[in-house]
Structures are given as structure tokens and as C-alpha cells.
Amino acid sequence: MDLVQAFWLGLIQGLTEFLPISSSAHLILLPRLLGWPDQGLAFDVAVHVGTLLAVLLHFRRQLVPLTTDTLQSVWRRERVGDSGLGWAIVIGTLPLVAGALVLADAADSVLRQPLVIAAATIGFGILLWVSARHQGRRSERDIGPGAALFIGAAQVLAIIPGTSRSGITMTAALWLGLEATAAARFSFLLSIPAIALAGGWKALQLVGTSAPVDWMAFAVGVGVAGVSAYLCIGAFLALVARVGMTPFVVYRIGLGLILIWLFAGQQAV
């Protein structure tokens, strides 16, 4: 992998990981258009590390008291500060763990078909638009165990490439009446264990392999993914507060149609 490819793949990963537009669809589309070889599992792990560092850095002031309050609530057996939000993140992560164990094989095979990705990109984009019409005024701190479980169950659908992990969790949160920026913030907080688990699972798959490591390309990918993701989180929250989710719905539909145009004819031949 050359450094130019590493730069662009890192940039695409960083920009699309937290936007509701599906990073997997973009990572399939870009190499297809430019004729690049598959970047490999090890590089995917590397850029996930970059995006994880970005979300940790963005929420660093909130994560320390959030973690402390959640741990204290276990010791004291009562709600402490933001422990309710902490437990919502824990509960919301549980369905993803179970779903990954059941659907991992399908996600790596049949679900990665281009037309499946196109259908998911369009279908879940329309669902995001419908859910945005249910937007209310609830905060992420109003999420109870049942709502957290619902959002977490929706997150399992992100195993289907093209769905978008951030998109489906925001869709579920909006459906429950959260305000748009609150839905986005909870989605980003929920991404921390999700990205860590996904990266850890991919790293375990690499154990025992003898694939060569291009450390310079990895460093570029991690750095670009991390910086672009960090900037994207703040910009997205500001944009959603002003214009809502509609621009991302339009973009998803357009992207899905491009994927159909690229791959439907190829399969027909």
C-alpha cells in the first residue's frame, strides 16, 4: 500500500465513521473507482484505532466523571451523578456483543455483496429521515434501560455493511424522541465500546498471521483517520443543530444509487 492510498483511506474512515452515511460503503466505493487493491484487515484495525482515539479525545472531559459515577453507583448501589448515562452505554453495548457472535460469518460473506450494501444505504437512509420527524426534546441523560436496549438492538443492524453504526443508533434515538444533537452525542459515546470491540475482534483475527506490516502507511492511516474524525465530530454536531439529518439522507440515497449503477450492470454481464 502506498502512502497516497493510506492517506485517502484514513481520511474516508475518519470522516464517515461518525457521520450517518456508512463508512463501509465508502471504503468499498473508493478502491473500486480508483482500482486499488484491498487494504487488508491489519489496516482496518489501524484506522479504527485512529477513530477511537478521536472520540475519546473529544469527550475526554465527560468520560472521566461518567466512568467514576458509574463505578461508584455499583459500590453504593444507587444512582450517582451521570451513572444513568453510563449504564445506558453499557446496556446499549450488550446486544452488539450477542449479535456479533451470531452474525459475524454472514457479515464477512453474503452481507458484503455490493447490492446488499446499496439497498442498506438507501433503505436505512429513508428510515433515518422518517425517524427525524419523531425528534423530540429529550436529552441523552433521559435514556433509561429500555431505551438503551432498543438503541443497542438497532446497533446490531450495523453489522450489515451500508447500514452505518452511527446512522442506525441515531435513527433509533430519534424515534424515541431524543433531540438530534442528543441522539448524535449518545451515538458517539456508544461508539467507544463498539469501535474498541470491533477493533479488538479484528486484531484477534490477525494473531498468528505472518502478513507484513507497512508501519509508515499504518502511521499515516491512523493519524489522518484520527484527526479527520476528531474534526468531524464537532462539525457534525454543529451542523445537525442547524439543519437536521436531511442532507445526510439525500447523500445516502445518492450514494446507494451510484453503487447500484456500478455493480448491477457488472453482475448482469
Score class of each variant (00 low, 15 high):
Y251S: 09
T246L: 15
P247R: 14
G244H: 04
L127R: 04
T209H: 11
V222S: 07
T68N: 12
I126N: 06
V156D: 11
A148N: 01
L85W: 00
A100L: 11
G254V: 07
P95A: 05
G208T: 06
S191A: 15
T169D: 04
V55F: 11
R76E: 12
A203N: 10
A196W: 08
A98Q: 07
G199V: 11
T121M: 15
T169Q: 08
A182M: 07
H48V: 05
L33V: 06
P247F: 14
V116I: 13
T181W: 08
A219V: 05
L237R: 06
P31K: 15
V97Y: 10
E78Y: 05
A211K: 11
I91R: 03
I159G: 08
T121H: 12
W8I: 11
V130T: 05
R112T: 02
L257D: 10
G234M: 13
G226E: 06
A88S: 10
M216C: 10
A46R: 02
D142G: 04
L239Q: 13
L255W: 04
W201A: 15
Q13S: 03
L9M: 12
F236V: 08
L237K: 04
L30H: 07
L15C: 01
P212M: 11
L178H: 00
P193A: 10
G221K: 10
A264I: 01
P161F: 13
A104M: 11
A203L: 15
A98I: 13
I253S: 08
T171C: 08
Q135D: 01
I12F: 00
A172K: 03
F150W: 14
A225M: 08
A100F: 07
L11N: 08
R185F: 03
T209C: 11
I122D: 03
V156C: 13
S139F: 06
L52D: 07
A225V: 06
A238N: 12
A107V: 03
G86F: 03
S109Y: 01
L176V: 00
S164R: 04
W36P: 01
A217K: 01
L197A: 15
L66N: 01
L190G: 02
S131M: 14
L34H: 10
S187T: 02
F236M: 15
P95S: 05
G177D: 03
G221I: 03
Q113M: 09
H134I: 00
A120D: 07
I192T: 07
